[in-house]
């Protein structure tokens, strides 16, 4: 417990407690529409946290994280459809598959000293050819998609992840909270220090006794494994999977935008960024309905992003945290 809250000023703890309480109580007061948006916010918070481990902490850029969402989603969904495997077992299987994929990409990239943007290109390549492969993978429906039987019911069966939106809300809330705690604990440990050292200067890190290959692999695999959990959630929440959407480049970009806007390498940046962008997106959708012009949503969203990135290049969270005195020394 000590490690979790060390260095966090009282004001930060109060805000965190209020925020957590608001999220826990939200389903009691909001309608289905707002709840669906909150689920989306938390979903992106969770994946953002996972992506941030790799890029924000260890400094390894992945532009193909949709790969791990897709693998997690397809593994658990296919096991459910074909063998009635419960989603939680399917999720574990998806984590293994995604972890292995992360291991292969990291192994190839880092063994041959592929760094920076070239490594990022490698991650895109893997996501893209996996998408093409799934288009022709008949067992999971190929390009016409994989569908989970939809049941409308009011009771919640947590074990088989079938139930009302409220259940999904609490599941993704638990995921997000868990990822935050995990990231915080790792950042305060030897592994966290080593990741930051690698991010800042790989040669210096190596001269300080850090096995750079091993620690980069750890970051990629952990990030992949966590991301795949969101994939399983996606599959059972939306009940339909298409290679075209789930493995898309667009999905990968969507993941990282929130983190960049919120604050790369920070603990609360991914959460803040996910909420900001999702809310902003919804706002623009409403706006677009009134203006009735094609592409107006994308245009406004793009403008907002531009403004944020120009004025807060390090992300909104570090600035907000400093302004309001919310964070301790280490987590800017």
């Amino acid at each position: 417990m000590n490690v979790l809250f060390a260095d966090v000023p009282v004001r930060g703890l109060v805000v965190l407690a209020v925020f957590a309480a608001a999220l826990i109580l939200a389903p009691a007061v909001v309608d289905d529409y707002v709840l669906s948006i909150l689920i989306l916010c938390l979903y992106f918070s969770f994946i953002g946290q996972a992506w941030n481990i790799m890029m924000g902490f260890a400094g390894q850029l992945s532009l193909g994280h949709s790969l791990y969402i897709g693998l997690g989603a397809y593994t658990s969904a296919a096991l459910f459809v074909h063998f009635q495997t419960i989603p939680w077992i399917g999720m574990l299987a998806g984590m293994v598959v995604a972890g292995a994929a992360g291991g292969i990409i990291g192994g190839l990239g880092f063994r041959f000293g592929i760094r920076g943007v070239y490594f990022a290109l490698l991650t895109i390549a893997f996501a893209e050819f996996t998408r093409v492969a799934f288009d022709h993978f008949g067992w999971v429906g190929g390009s016409s998609g994989l569908f989970l039987p939809v049941e409308y019911r009011d009771d919640s069966d947590l074990l088989s992840l079938r139930g009302a939106p409220v259940m999904f809300y609490y599941v993704i809330l638990a995921f997000t909270a868990g990822a935050l705690v995990l990231a915080r604990l790792i950042l305060a440990s030897k592994i966290g220090y080593y990741w930051l050292a690698i991010r800042e200067d790989q040669e210096a890190a190596q001269a300080l006794g850090i096995n750079v290959f091993r620690y980069k692999m750890l970051a990629v695999v952990l990030s992949a494994v966590l991301t795949s959990m969101a994939g399983t959630f996606y599959a059972f929440y939306y009940n339909n999977l298409y290679p075209e959407t789930i493995f898309s480049m667009h999905k990968s970009i969507e993941i990282l935008l929130g983190v960049v806007v919120g604050g790369l390498g920070t603990l609360f940046g991914p959460i803040l960024g996910a909420f900001l962008l999702t809310m902003l997106g919804e706002l623009m959708t409403d706006l677009a309905e009134h203006i009735d012009l094609d592409g107006v949503k994308q245009l406004f969203l793009g403008l907002c992003l531009l403004v944020i990135i120009v004025f807060r290049p390090a992300g909104v969270w570090p600035w907000l945290a400093r302004r309001l005195g919310l964070s301790g020394r280490r987590d800017a």
Binding site: Y193, Y194, L196, E200, A204
Partner: peptide
Amino acid sequence: FQIAKPLAGLSVLDNVVVGGLR
């Protein structure tokens, strides 16, 4: 290193902590 390689984003103390974790 002749051309110093500080872990620029980390504090001075944390730089040395990274070394100490060996």
